[in-house]
């Protein structure tokens, strides 16, 4: 490089150096942020292996003197996590499958069809984005009760089968797809379902992945609604099991036990993210979601 560029004349070397300094600085900043976000999770994992009879202190904040699985054993003994896991997976998976069907159909209808009351309907759906889910607990409970679905897995899932956000997202995604592709499919004799399946859904995959991720993490963590509409172990999700550890207002937090419960609950979600990390990040980049 020294032979091809004359120092002092060409701006290239200094610009190059400046750029690499900026890159390095950027990496450092990113690393600091990443570590900041990761610390609670790493700490939770470390403390979940902390012996329960050893107090946490400034000098003994991590594993303690001997890492142990005792807290996990206690956690599994206190709450039927196996059943809760199954329930959570059914609830989250069930909601997601139905949501993907309803939002792609609704999004397609709003993007490509014309029908009476279309704008009013779409406006109403958008309006739902402004209503916090907790404000609807009483009317939703009332509906579940009248449908005689109380204390079933369906009751936990039902209010979320439609998604205003998902419908909006799919509509916007479908609108970008060139209509010529649609017309071409029609010309080849495809009906609307085939058109949706072969023309609209493939390019919408990143948006659907992004939506799936936000749906899964929301419903995996939802606590109040499942608590209100269920009474028995066979219909309750993990978060309700976690409540046995986190609601210990009287005596203060038992951190080793709380963190063990937390790791049990979020562990699979974390694993899922690590496995599908690349797809998730790509989908977020494509769909412009944060």
């Amino acid at each position: 490089m020294n032979e091809t560029t004359k120092p002092g004349r060409s701006p290239r070397p200094s610009r190059f150096r400046l750029k690499s300094i900026f890159n390095a600085l950027g990496l450092i900043v990113l690393a600091v942020i990443a570590i900041g976000w990761a610390i609670p999770m790493i700490w939770a994992m470390a403390v979940s292996a902390h012996p329960p009879d050893e107090p946490l202190s400034a000098t003994n904040l991590w594993f303690g003197s001997r890492p142990t699985l005792e807290n996990y054993a206690t956690a599994f003994q206190i709450a039927p996590f196996a059943q809760y896991y199954l329930n959570t997976i059914i609830i989250v998976g069930g909601i997601l499958v139905v949501q993907l069907i309803t939002i792609s159909l609704a999004g397609y209808a709003f993007a490509r069809f014309e029908f009476r009351g279309q704008n009013v309907l779409f406006f109403l759906i958008l309006l739902q984005l402004m209503v916090p889910a907790s404000a609807l607990i009483v009317p939703n409970y009332s509906t579940i009760r009248q449908l005689r679905l109380f204390d079933t897995l369906v009751a936990v899932m039902l209010p979320f089968f439609g998604s205003a956000f998902g419908t909006f997202l799919m509509r916007q995604t479908f609108k970008i797809i060139p209509r010529d592709l649609d017309d071409a499919a029609k010309m080849d004799g495809a009906n609307w379902l085939q058109t949706l399946w072969h023309v609209y859904l493939p390019p919408a995959r990143p948006a659907m992945t992004a939506f799936a991720l936000s749906s899964i993490s929301f419903h995996w963590n939802d606590f109040l609604w499942p608590l209100v509409v269920t009474n028995s172990t066979h219909s309750r999700p993990l978060t309700v099991g976690l409540a046995v550890f986190t609601q210990l207002g009287e005596i203060g937090a038992q951190w080793p036990l709380v963190t063990a419960g937390t790791v049990i609950v979020v562990g699979p979600l974390l694993l899922l993210f690590l496995i599908f990390q690349r797809q998730f990040i790509e989908s977020f980049l494509h769909s412009g979601l944060k």
């Binding site: 409970y141 109380f150 609601q247």
Partner: peptide
């Protein structure tokens, strides 16, 4: 007796109030 774990004290009250308001 069907014993139902109902979260913390606040959650228990919310669950009961929701049931009553929702006609259950």
């Amino acid at each position: 007796v069907n014993a139902v774990l109902s979260g913390g004290y606040g959650d228990t009250l919310t669950k009961i109030q929701t049931t009553i308001k929702g006609g259950g």
